[in-house]
Amino acid sequence: MAGKKTGLSHQPVFRAGVVVVIILTGFALLRMIFVPPTFGVYGYYRASNLDYWATRPVAYAQGTQCDTCHGERAGFVAAGGHAGLDCQSCHGPAASHPDNPGAWQPTINPDREFCARCHGQVEGRPDTVIKQIDLDQHNPGVSCVQCHDPHRPWTMLGTRLGGSKS
């Protein structure tokens, strides 16, 4: 007689179980493929991306690094009207310079326009914060560094101004 089949594989519960197992396996496989490594360690992102950002190369060296070789000049700057300025504010990024100073040096810009970037009279620039000159009126045609040492703006004019400024 045909009767009811009694083997394990004929139980409806078992068949449903097989379906569940298939779904779970499929989910796990997809998850393995699509969720990238280190995703979710600290949050909804790849934790390894933190290392990417933290280890990017630096273009501007630490300000104090210049002092190790240019200590004298740093002291010279620090005692005058440009005290507090980083060398690289004027000379640009220099991180690749200290390793091989002979081979690569930062830029030097003695143009009038360069000084005027900070000192030119421009609407919005507060004269309580910085002294300004009219680029067209203030000794036109002569380079600023002829009269103002860029590293200590009053030093060459000291006597002319009664030696009160540096």
Binding site: A28, M32, T38
Partner: peptide, 18 residues
């Protein structure tokens, strides 16, 4: 698959850790 679901991804075989 249970192994990969239960274990956090960073310690899994697939990738480097932070």
């Amino acid at each position: 698959s249970l192994v990969t679901v239960v274990l956090p991804p960073a310690t899994g075989t697939a990738g480097g850790t932070a």
